[in-house]
Amino acid sequence: MSGAAFKRRRSMTHAMIHGALVATCLVCIVPLWLIISASFTDEQALVERGFRLIPAKFSTEAYRFLLADPAQILRAYSVSVLVTFSGAMVSLFLMSMLAYALSRRDFSLRKVLALFVFFPILFNAGTLPFYILMVRQLGLKDNLLALVLPPLVLPFFVLLLRTFFSNIPRELIEAAKLDGASEWLIYFRVVVPLSTPALATVGLFSLLFYWNDLYLSLLFINDKSLYNLQYLLYQIIANIQLLEEGFAGQGLKPPLQSVRMAMAVLAMGPVLFAFMFVQRYFIKGITLGGLKGD
């Protein structure tokens, strides 16, 4: 095969790859654009003419409605940010240590503990016993800890991390051990730096889990000052529906459809940013390549 032909084939392949990815991305991005566009569309136009790539009639009414009480929404944002960041950080720390221990083939309790971690994925006690534990035994009603603590260790993420970690060459760990490094040192100095993409991925997932969580607020939060963003938006929508169903009337017609879309944008925005931020840790090959020089 001549070099030129090889190159041509190469660039053909690349064009095809980009073609496929661009097509897939379009399928993903068009709805996003429709949502953003709909959130800026006048309610009446939205109902009459449906979703358009460019708002049929531009309006910021939905956002004005949602942001009518800025203090309230700011507080909800800060609750969400606080819970999400503290939760995700502690969570990543706990889960990665646990997963690392489970990934070590020479760890005697490996199988038993793996089963221990796996079991709750399938079997759970249900809402009521969980509620009794949280409220009556731990007294966590209307307490932000109720939002932070339960998802600290999510079995699926632990098992994912374990699988990532088990790809780390055993020789590296053995070598470090021979050099007299303690298990802790090995974990922090060898395993963590080697696993940035994995930790970034699971950290991101954990972040998303905290950010999107509505269930725990539904169960344990009644105090309005402790509402997180998802819960506040959920309540706003529920109340609009109620208004629409004609209790309080008073000539008020909240833009239900566009508010729903604006809500999606408000809830999505910050995590999209977080996602792009975390992405810088998805860096190809840097890990092992970098280590080789040591």
Binding site: L128, Y131, I132, R136, L218, L219, Y234, Q235, A238, N239
Partner: peptide
């Protein structure tokens, strides 16, 4: 709130709060 009152009250009654 209207949307979650039923669940919250049910849990309160069931859990013996």
């Amino acid at each position: 709130g209207f949307s979650d009152a039923a669940q919250k009250i049910a849990l309160m009654l069931q859990s013996g709060e």
